[in-house]
Amino acid sequence: MLRIAIVDDHEIVRAGFREMLSEETGLQIAFEAASGEEALALLRDTPCDLVLLDLSLPGQSGIDVLRTLRQRHAALRVLVLSGFPEERYALAMLRNGADGYLGKECERDELIRAIHIVAQGRRYVSARVAELLADELAGDASHPAHLQLSERELQVFLRLARGESVSAIAEALKLSVKTVSTYRSRLLEKLEVASNAELAAYAIRHGLILP
Rank of each mutant, 00 (worst) to 15 (best):
L154Q: 08
L175E: 15
L94K: 03
V156P: 00
L191P: 01
A203W: 03
R128M: 11
S22T: 08
A168W: 04
R95F: 00
L66F: 05
L79D: 08
R72S: 15
H73L: 13
A134Y: 02
R152W: 08
Q155T: 05
L53M: 10
R128F: 15
A145F: 02
H146C: 09
E198V: 01
M93A: 09
A200V: 00
L149W: 02
K104A: 00
A75D: 14
A141N: 03
T68I: 07
A75F: 11
R77W: 03
L2Y: 01
I117C: 09
L40V: 04
V51Y: 07
A168P: 08
K178V: 15
A172L: 11
H10C: 10
G100A: 02
E23W: 08
A134K: 06
G100W: 04
A90F: 12
N196W: 00
G62C: 01
F84G: 03
E32H: 10
A114I: 10
L208D: 06
E131T: 11
A114Y: 04
L50C: 11
Q28E: 10
Q28T: 00
T68Y: 00
E32F: 07
D9R: 00
E87Y: 10
A30C: 07
C106V: 14
V13R: 04
G103T: 15
H116R: 15
E110L: 02
V156S: 04
L21R: 04
H206S: 09
L79Q: 09
L53N: 07
L154D: 03
R122K: 15
R162G: 10
G97Y: 04
S35H: 01
M20W: 10
L94N: 06
L132M: 13
R128W: 12
E136W: 06
E24H: 07
L21K: 11
P85H: 04
I117E: 08
I4C: 03
H143G: 03
S142N: 11
L111G: 05
N96F: 03
A5C: 08
R159A: 13
R67D: 06
L175S: 14
I169H: 05
R128V: 15
I4F: 00
E19W: 14
A138G: 14
G207K: 01
E87S: 10
R113G: 14
I169K: 00
H146R: 00
F157V: 06
M20A: 00
D54F: 04
R186C: 11
E11T: 13
L147N: 11
L191C: 03
S82V: 05
S35Q: 05
L132Y: 08
E136S: 14
A145G: 06
D45G: 08
H206V: 06
I4M: 04
A90E: 01
L188C: 02
I112L: 14
A130R: 07
L79Y: 09
